[in-house]
Design a protein around this nucleic acid. Structure first.
Lengths: 151, 151
DNA sequence: GCATTTTACTTAACATGTTAATGGCAAGGT
DNA sequence: ACCTTGCCATTAACATGTTAAGTAAAATGC
C-alpha cells in the first residue's frame, strides 16, 4: 500500500525540481568560467549589480542580486578582502554603508562579460529565442504571483 | 519601471536569476510547512524518492533528488539519526548501501503530503494550469538540452 | 526628552552547495 | 595472482542558504 504511488508527481513534473535542474543546466558553464577567475556565482552577481547601478547600500544589493543579508555580509567581506569593492559609511545614516565597485572589480567584469554573453547567446540559439523569452515571461509572471492578492 | 539597455541584461531577463526567484516563490510555503515537522526541503526530497521508488542506493537517490553525493552523505546521516531511514550493506557489492524509508518516515510523508498537494493545487489554480504545464515543459526541454548532441 | 519601535546590518548555528582528495572495493587485462 | 583502472561513498575545506538572535542607530509616539 503505497499512498504516494499515485498522488505524488514525478520529479520531472515537480516544479521545484524542474527549476533546480534547469538552473543547474544554465549555471554550470558560467560557474566554470568564474572558477577560473576565482569568484563565485554569487560574488559575480554582486559585482554585476554594482557595475550596472553604481554605488548602493547592502540592502539594495541583496534585493537586486537575490541574496539574503547574512550571505551578503560574508560576500561583501570577501569581495573587500579581494579588493574588488570598497565600503564607506553613509554620510547621514550611520546604520548604512555605501558599497562601490573598484577598478579591479570593473576589470574583472570586463574580462568575463564577453564570455558570459557568448554563453548567453549559445543558450538563446540552442534553446530557441522564442522559447527562452516565453520561459522568462512565465518565470517573471510566477514570481509576481501573490503580490497583491495576499489574503 | 526603468529597463535600461546596458551591456548586461536586467535581472528579470537573466535566466539564472529568474529561475532563482521562481524557485524561492514556490519553495517558500513548502519550507514553512516542513519546518514545523523538523525536516529540510532536501531531506523531504530524499524521503519522497524513497517512498515512491522503494529501497535505493545513494547514487540513485542523489540522481533522483537532485543532490550531490557529499550533500546526500550528510543528509542520510541526519535522516538515520532521526530514525526516518535505514541503511544496510549491499549483499554482493560492499561499496554500496541500500537505503530504505522507515515506518516513521512514511508517516511523516503521509502527514504532510496532503498539505503539500494543497499548496500544489493552489499554485496550479493561482498561476493557471495551462501556464504551469507550459512552464514545466519548457524547463524539462531546457534540462534535456545537449543530452544527445553531446558527442 | 525619553521610551518604544523600526531599520540596517551583523553574528551565530546549523544545513546544504561545491570542488578536490581519500579509502575501500570491484572489474578488466595480463 | 597482480596491476591498473574505475566506481561508490565519505571526508575535507570553503562558500552560501536559512533562521534566529544581537547590536547600533534612526524613526516614532507619548
Amino acid at each position: 500500500m503505497d499512498i504516494t504511488r499515485d498522488t505524488a508527481p514525478e520529479t520531472n513534473r515537480s516544479l521545484p525540481i524542474a527549476l533546480l535542474r534547469a538552473r543547474e543546466k544554465v549555471m554550470g558553464p558560467i560557474r566554470a568560467m568564474l572558477a577560473d577567475v576565482g569568484v563565485t556565482e554569487q560574488q559575480w552577481r554582486v559585482l554585476r549589480v554594482l557595475a550596472e547601478r553604481g554605488t548602493l547600500d547592502p540592502t539594495e544589493i541583496a534585493d537586486r542580486s537575490c541574496l539574503l543579508m547574512p550571505s551578503l555580509t560574508r560576500i561583501l567581506q570577501t569581495l573587500t578582502a579581494k579588493g574588488l569593492i570598497t565600503r564607506e559609511a553613509h554620510p547621514t545614516d550611520k546604520r548604512r554603508q555605501l558599497v562601490s565597485i573598484t577598478p579591479d572589480g570593473r576589470q574583472l567584469i570586463a574580462d568575463n562579460l564577453k564570455e558570459s554573453q557568448r554563453l548567453n547567446a549559445w543558450l538563446r540559439e540552442s534553446f530557441g529565442a522564442d522559447k527562452l523569452d516565453a520561459l522568462l515571461d512565465l518565470l517573471n509572471e510566477l514570481d509576481a504571483l501573490d503580490r497583491d492578492t495576499r489574503g
